[in-house]
């Protein structure tokens, strides 16, 4: 399953494509990843749904990658300002999400006494 999803990513490193091809590739990645998501997440038990929500929340902070490029490029002042704000917000999302998930999961695990 994992392999199927990442194949298009590997292809990206090999050849430069025309725009339509590039779009199809991204669309392929999108649909396959959705499918993998459905497969994997239906197996998460109801008891762990809150940590699942907060953990997936942290993952959606991946948009920080785009924010880093937009800020770091320093192409325009306004663009960098927007990027800066996006990095701040996305990092709140990433750090807040992973840390709170860890805290929650710690409560589910019996403590060593």
């Amino acid at each position: 399953m994992v392999v199927i999803t990442v194949m298009p990513l590997l292809a990206e490193a090999v050849a430069a494509e025309d725009p339509a091809g590039r779009f199809i590739r991204l669309l392929t990645v999108f649909l396959l990843a959705m499918w993998v998501g459905f497969e994997v997440i239906t197996k998460v038990p109801q008891r762990l749904h809150t940590p699942l929500t907060s953990g997936s929340n942290a993952v959606s902070g991946i948009t920080a990658v785009g924010a880093i490029v937009a800020t770091g490029a320093l192409a325009t002042r306004f663009g960098s300002l927007l990027g800066f704000l996006a990095v701040v917000l996305a990092m709140i999302n990433v750090v807040g999400g992973f840390v709170v998930t860890h805290r929650m999961l710690g409560m589910f695990n019996p403590k060593k006494k």
Binding site: V29, F30, L31, A33, M34, W35, V36, G37, F38, V40, I41, L52, T53, S56, N57, V59, S60, I62, T63
Partner: peptide, 8 residues
């Protein structure tokens, strides 16, 4: 990553 979260 986005579509994984979207699916979830």
């Amino acid at each position: 990553a986005g579509s994984l979260v979207g699916a979830s």
